[in-house]
Design a protein around this nucleic acid. Structure first.
Ligand code: MN
Ligand code: MN
Ligand code: ZN
Ligand code: ZN
Lengths: 140, 140
DNA sequence: ATTTTATTTGAAAAGGGTTATTATTTGAGA
DNA sequence: TCTCAAATAATAACCCTTTTCAAATAAAAT
């Protein structure tokens, strides 16, 4: 939360109750992948006067600032999750093609691939998004 | 094209000129990542009577059949590319955060990670989508 | 504490990619 | 050729997201 305040100040932006509350919802729901409507519903509990447009704007802002990540599950809406600073990279996702479950993968194991890319393509990697599709243990 | 005919027949679906033409456009524009409107415009050259809704339906169908792949670049629309059967997996993409360039990566190098996932999570991997974000050599 | 000012907000409208509807056409097997 | 389920074109509807704009407000200046 202090980090949010600092990053906002640098850009001349304000720390509002709405922004604070929205970030708190993401922080308190780690491991889930909530869409904007779901986040809106939860934020309203603590911040009943907030508007849906503000939630959209805030999520966009928090994503640009790197505090949260957007996730696309091809279900017609954007989903978000809190960026845990303990992990140095965004974690990977396993998506079950049978039941739709989304599983978090803590393993990174991309160092070899990233090194090869940086060398071969002279591309400086800042971030990545990795999704694996298949059948989860419950469905197998 | 023969593969399309076979896969359609299995499901009791028809091989129409519209489907044929749409797949040909993707085949003839490999290396690009066209959105639906762009594909529609090109298909119209050979198939002027085709409707936009048919292009949407066909791209969805070809994606489900595994003949093409959908790509999300967070620019408000879906993009597609032909699945080259020479590659056994979908290739990775490098996305420049400065100029927006999209670069194809032929290296796979995910075997180690995929093996670890199959073992540790008992998840049978069928496919993957991997995007790297950073700065390309032109912008660096 | 008061004033100032650029930023932010809520409500509602607009936007825009995608999907659904429906009457008509058509591919492909009999 | 006949038959019929599947596909199409045109258009309306859908729905997630962004924009608009007047009012409110955080935060710096006084
Ligand atoms: Mn996650
Ligand atoms: Mn590609
Ligand atoms: Zn499953
Ligand atoms: Zn670039």
């Amino acid at each position: 939360m202090e980090e949010l305040k600092e990053k906002l100040k640098v850009k001349g932006l304000k720390l509002t109750p709405q922004r604070r509350a929205t970030l708190e919802v993401l922080f308190n729901n780690q491991g889930q992948h909530l869409n904007t409507e779901e986040i809106y519903a939860i934020v309203k509990e603590k911040c009943p006067e907030i508007g849906l447009a503000t939630v959209y704007r805030t999520l966009q802002l928090l994503d640009e600032m790197g505090l949260i990540s957007k996730l696309n599950l091809d279900d017609g809406c954007s989903r978000y999750e809190f960026n845990n600073h303990d992990e140095d990279h965004q974690h990977h996702h396993l998506i079950c093609q049978s039941c739709g479950a989304v599983i978090e993968v803590e393993l990174d194991l991309l160092d070899q691939l990233e090194e090869a890319i940086e060398k071969e393509y002279r591309f400086r990697i800042k971030d990545h998004k990795v999704k694996f599709f298949g059948i989860c243990s419950n469905c197998d």
